[in-house]
Design a binder for these strands. Sequence first.
DNA 1: GCCGTTTTCGGCCCGACTGTTTTCAGTCG
Length: 573
Amino acid sequence: MPVKNRELALAFERIGDALEFRGENPFKIIAYRRAARILNDLTEDIEVIHAKGALRSIPGIGEGIAKKIDEFLRTGKMKKYEEVVGDIPDGFLELMAIPNLGPKTLGLANKELGVRSLSDLKRVILDGSLARLPRMGEKKVANILKGIERFEVSKERISLGEAFPLVTRVTDRLRQLKEVHQVSPAGSLRRSKETVGDIDILVSAETGREVIRAFTHMPEVEERLAEGDTKGSVVMAGGHQVDVRVVPENSYGAALQYFTGSKAHNVKLRSMARERGLKISEYGVFKGERKVAGKTEEEVYGILNLPWVPPELREDRGEIEAAMKGKLPSLVEYVHIKGDLHVHSDYSDGAASLEEIAEEAKRLGYEYVAICDHSKSVRYAGGLSEERILEQLEHIARLNEKIGNFTILAGTEVDILQNGTLDYPDRLLEKLDIVVAAIHMGFKQNCTERMQKAMDNPHVDVIAHPTGRLISSREGYQIEIHKIIEKAAATGTALEINAYYDRLDLSDVNVRTAKEYGVHLSIGTDAHNLHQLWMMKLGVGVARRGWLEPEDLLNILPVDALRDFVNVKRKRS
DNA sequence: GCCGTTTTCGGCCCGACTGTTTTCAGTCG
């Protein structure tokens, strides 16, 4: 994300928090938070938009916020920020993330008891003074204390790749119950968001009690938080919360729509409904007292004259406007994928042999798989010497003759060195079917220029994990992603959607920007063993969140067309 | 603070749950 987009988003987020804490007009708070979200989601650099004088053309950015953006970009400061956030102690606003403790209570504790930090808060709980404030009591304070415990141990959101297998186990189990009609994950997991908060699962059934009981008594359940007739909530082994809700068949669609979110998408949908004299809730769409839709999601969208919107698009990033105009993209699907374009074998640091990988890829229904082991400088990952990769090349050729109806593509994940040259010479690269290039060392050293230089090489077909981020632990290279995308467009180089669960790099928003620049994308799992090949599904999720249609992806090409793509760039020079 | 084929002012999504209340405020999703 462009650096100013991020800084402005953070500033508006903080202003929103501060205003909430100060008990300001809630709609003003929403406006700031909306602006923060818009800046996070923006595919363009806000400085570019500012230079064009087009700030006000962004929906959700009005006169006030446009002025503040302008002030910040010109002077590096924002008066409003200093005013409302300036004198609040560091870390105080974060206390609003404590479950069961909201701005009102925090504000009260601050005003009446001088609470300014987490340790202050604990003190006024323990000495009983918080419980004596108006509308407070023993139980409320006990809940806040529980919230603090969760806050302190809170593993933040878990990654999609960890949540996915967990939710599949639960939904498979629920489907076996005779009371159950339909089962679906909901929430951010259904939207394929890269991280997931609590895991929500929706069930339609005639009676809820037995379903909930079966769920809360699954062997993996560590703690039961709630166990009613329509809702069950547990902590699973590993500390992740999972909620199951049971609804009757005739409101399943409305409930699924509701619990899938995102919040911003739903808010917009509801406000559209209101303009038409309709009311949407998780029970259905109502005209006065009369229920007019709710059995399926298609019905809910249909009553607003909209086509069904794929869950991955439901982020209020223009999908509702596109749906109104009949311009929703027809998104790529997992069944379109003909091969995995980034897999490691036991030649470098992977666990599986070429034979095993080919067999498994074939079983998954692919037509090809690209073996992209590390190059010689990446010692810690068993990078291949030039002799060794030539051996591998011959090995692949022999296997391809043996296997019918399937192609192993000889590739490499060649390192982009500190000076921007590649770790193998061109005379070697030209022997390979596909060349994926990546940075693994010197994350802070002019990465933008190095990648640009690499893309100028006619043999480089794909840039792997272009930002280098690790979701759980690392920010990524210091790069200007827009320059990378522009260069990819100019040189006919594809950018990777690395589907490894902790990477998902490029991210959804960057994928969408790349598409807008006409860049092709390539999904690779970066799998280091057979089991990890399933993560292609995560990559497809990111592609769909980036609005990709089949033709935007290399992976949907038959093998000959894929070779054509490679040759076009090689012949250019 | 944003926004407008009913509005440039007066709205802004909706409901459940909980705990504190004697009619409702706060928090959550």
